[in-house]
Design a protein around this nucleic acid. Structure first.
Lengths: 244, 244
DNA sequence: CGAATGCTTGAAGCTTATCAAAGCTGGTGG
DNA sequence: CCACCAGCTTTGATAAGCTTCAAGCATTCG
């Protein structure tokens, strides 16, 4: 049994050899702790390291000159922050901790051995990236064409799905905790905190969810899935992967 | 000199060996022609092949039950359609030709030799994917937090940038042609065709662009870049790439 | 206990959507 | 070569959804 978050996550999608696991574990050799709200990466700074998330929630976001803010993505256990940076020399956006977090920093060159000696693991990493890509397309659809009610349903289902996957496909009867303020949610979905509040109340009144603090229970997953045409696609196609 | 669109595009970002070029060329062995508006892939269908775009414009899009539509991405020369599908067994969205197009189909397994025998080329392909990802994040920011005026400026600059890259970094004094209707543009940006029309007129009246049919000339790139905080990041970081 | 932060609720205003009709343009056939 | 047609664009009027502003309430934390 490993305590590597990457192995835990990637292992859900494809079998990993001893060597593959060892390479992933190497990326998590160091640990660094961050407190809530601590800035992890600043826009415009050179990118010299990336991170594996061991615990906690992070977000990358972009702030416009006049203060408008857009949250771009959420990272948690087993995610690599920010793999998008692998192609860049300078960070495009800010990243901060939404909760206390433990990260494992590694240099960009840490990926080189992986690309060099395990085509199969590389294909897996590639597929994960492409899959995140599909998640972003879903968000574009939601922000571009959904009203506030639909967007919130979508976000709740998406987070529920990701958290269930991280927790090993279990449905949690007591729901899940979302460490986001309503302003954060607004900035994720292109809304305002005020309207998020009003719309969440409506969703709750309609019996789709229950709220207890920032813990959410999804009461009517089917109805919610219909509302925002949400489909859970958790598996990836490994059929074309190199054998090793 | 090759006539491979992939080699032409990828070669702009990193040097390619003979072998690498040959592998890319192999993906373009077959050609298939599509007429304008022809459907190339249908949502829900199994994914058995992907395509290199030789010429023409394509779009992937999602249609909701009530007819609302969101264009997700545009593909043109040298792009792989739809690399996002590599991780999936079933297509998540529809893809169609916006203009007459020539595509080179190849099976998903066509990627296997590439992953197997060229870590360097794989790293490049990975970086391209991650870079597209950054483009999507830019669109999320635009749709989530920009008003219609800003969104349109953003789209025009983004297309200008991509087309200049495809054309070898040349500024075209006579602008560029965008084979999109205003309804298409609206569906890309989360607006309506009517409002796109009104806002485009305003952008033109303000002297930022000139329009001649669907050809656009960017008159004041600097001012437009300020309006939507657009930054052109065309290069990728190859410093960590495996040597071969 | 007080201060800070976040949530809720209400009222007014603005951006964008919707509906409708007229103008334009490019392609086709006579 | 002109006339027509279909699809696209433009323009105007009205309406909806969301934002902004503002005040009160709840919860947490030192």
């Amino acid at each position: 049994m490993t305590n590597s978050c990457l192995v835990a996550k990637l292992g859900k999608f494809a079998s990993l050899s001893e060597g593959d696991s060892a390479m992933l574990e190497a990326l998590e050799r160091d640990e660094r702790e961050y407190r809530k709200d601590q800035l992890i990466q600043r826009r415009g700074n050179p990118i010299d390291e990336m991170f594996v998330v061991k615990s906690g929630w992070l977000t990358s976001f972009s702030v416009l000159d006049d203060g408008r803010r857009q949250l771009l993505r959420l990272f948690f256990s087993g995610d690599i922050v920010d793999l998008s940076n692998v192609a860049l020399t300078v960070s495009q956006h800010d990243i901060k901790a939404l909760t206390p977090a433990v990260l494992c920093p590694f240099p960009k060159s840490g990926l080189e051995p992986l690309f060099h000696s395990s085509p199969r693991l590389t294909a897996l990493l590639f597929s994960m990236t492409v899959r995140e890509n599909a998640t972003l397309l879903g968000r574009i659809r939601a922000i571009g064409r959904f009203n506030a009610y639909e967007r919130l349903c979508y976000l709740i289902l998406e987070l529920g799905s990701r958290l269930r996957l991280a927790a090993g496909h279990q449905y949690a009867p007591d729901g899940f905790r979302i460490p986001l303020t309503q302003s954060d949610i607004a900035d994720l979905l292109g809304l305002t905190n005020v309207y998020v509040s009003k719309t969440m109340s409506r969703i709750e009144k309609d019996g789709l969810i229950e709220r207890h603090g920032n813990r959410i229970i999804i009461c009517e997953p089917k109805r919610m899935q219909n509302i925002c045409e949400f489909e859970d696609s958790e598996q990836i196609d490994t059929s074309w992967f190199p054998l090793r």
